[in-house]
Design a protein around this nucleic acid. Structure first.
Lengths: 231, 231
DNA sequence: TGTTCAATGATAGTATTACTATCTTTCTAT
DNA sequence: ATAGAAAGATAGTAATACTATCATTGAACA
């Protein structure tokens, strides 16, 4: 099955749309590879230019700076993931099952999606785990936010939040719980691989354990709350 | 009451111990102010040197680079917080109450502690919220980890993890839940202030709401699990 | 077939950052 | 009175993060 879809990214993120040219697509494809290899701090436009076989100036025609490029690929990921969620929960009626499907999509390893030729989703997933929060953890979050740059992340959050409310309309913290799910799916993965004593998954480093942890956490939270229990 | 205590920080983090000289203490004090004002990305040793009235070279005698300095002050914070937890839970016997106290210490606003003359804990708390995860979200986490650099963070995690297990020895994910608590105490705070639609605290931006959310989440998780319920 | 315009390539240059080196001054402990 | 450590002063380098300009290519249209 080939899914044809539209990734919608704020125009504020680029100077020239990288989807619409060979060089643009090369920038996306190879920046994902290089950020993955070097880490965002040690990734530079100069290295990228050399790797692609173009010049720094060429890259600056597409992106103002490397932070904008990071925002672009991270937005791309959230957008893509939201579409995966739509496709894969489309025919599921039970909201609890829908939510479980989402936990899987968030925390399980991502395979490269062949329908997107210039994006390796598996590498991109790892970038989002390690570098994703740097997208918003800056001095200029609020300015960026005014440019609608975080819309894909917020949309995903809203979608998960609605599923939570569908499971239990009385639960008081659907948005914060959604944020917790998204961030913890990634942080537990990062810790599991790099600082394993901070998790309970040190022995068998397996994504399915993270899914189990998150499932336990989420359903405990929304089920307890049904009873209107209060401390 | 004046509490005299020892902050223990890995020697790998500095070239010369900043606690032991005037200039060293000035570096700590003013780097906290500047990182708070500029954000870590726009903070430089040159700006710091000018602000203090010394030279870049002077700062490099204490810290190899600005990332090490960040690690230093973040470690300092986790160390200080662990001591606060020890002092403030010392005479509480009930593990659930101890845990609640910890949630408060983690998520409530921090006031400057006058017993530490060269550290403004309130500013430092805000830095840890915005920049704390950059301490480990790097290419060189594992090398840093081998130098024991994350010990204060891990110790805090272990302490909270033990409290969770004291509440419910059968709960399967005490470490991951502890990580979740620590990180979410900060992320919810960051989002509440900068991207409020990602939380349920947009209307009344109040730390106590975060404490309530975390309390609900944690006790739901550990109580549900007592029953050995399984999905 | 020639012209035009956009995209890219090639090259150069600047300000700032992230350091390192060296030499001098100051202050403190013996 | 003097040795030694800490700090100040100054200079310099390589890399980063850009900006500017001009030439080349290639497709599109007339």
């Amino acid at each position: 099955m080939r899914l044809h879809f539209q990734i919608n990214i704020s125009e504020a993120l680029y100077l020239k749309n990288p989807e619409e040219s060979d060089l643009g697509r090369k920038i996306i494809k190879h920046s994902i590879e290089l950020i993955h290899d070097y880490g965002f701090e040690y990734f530079t436009f100069k290295k990228l230019a050399e790797y692609i076989g173009t010049t720094e100036a060429g890259i600056y025609r597409y992106f103002e700076n490397k932070h904008r490029l990071l925002l672009y690929i991270v937005s791309w990921y959230w957008n893509w993931l939201s579409l995966q969620i739509v496709f894969q929960t489309n025919n599921i009626k039970d909201p609890a099952l829908r939510l479980k499907k989402v936990l899987n999509l968030l925390a399980a390893e991502v395979e490269d999606d062949d329908s997107t030729l210039y994006v390796n989703e598996s590498l991109l997933h790892q970038i989002v785990i390690s570098e994703g929060s740097k997208a918003y953890l800056t001095n200029h979050v609020e300015a960026d936010n005014k440019l609608q740059i975080f819309k894909p992340y917020k949309d995903l959050n809203a979608a998960i939040s609605e599923m939570i409310s569908a499971c239990n309309p009385k639960y008081k913290y659907p948005r914060s719980l959604a944020t917790t799910i998204i961030e913890m799916a990634h942080f537990q993965n990062f810790f599991m691989h790099h600082l394993p004593s901070l998790t309970d998954f040190a022995k068998e480093k397996n994504d399915s354990r993270i899914v189990a942890f998150l499932t336990d956490l989420v359903f405990a939270a929304i089920q307890t709350n049904t009873k209107g229990k209060k401390e």
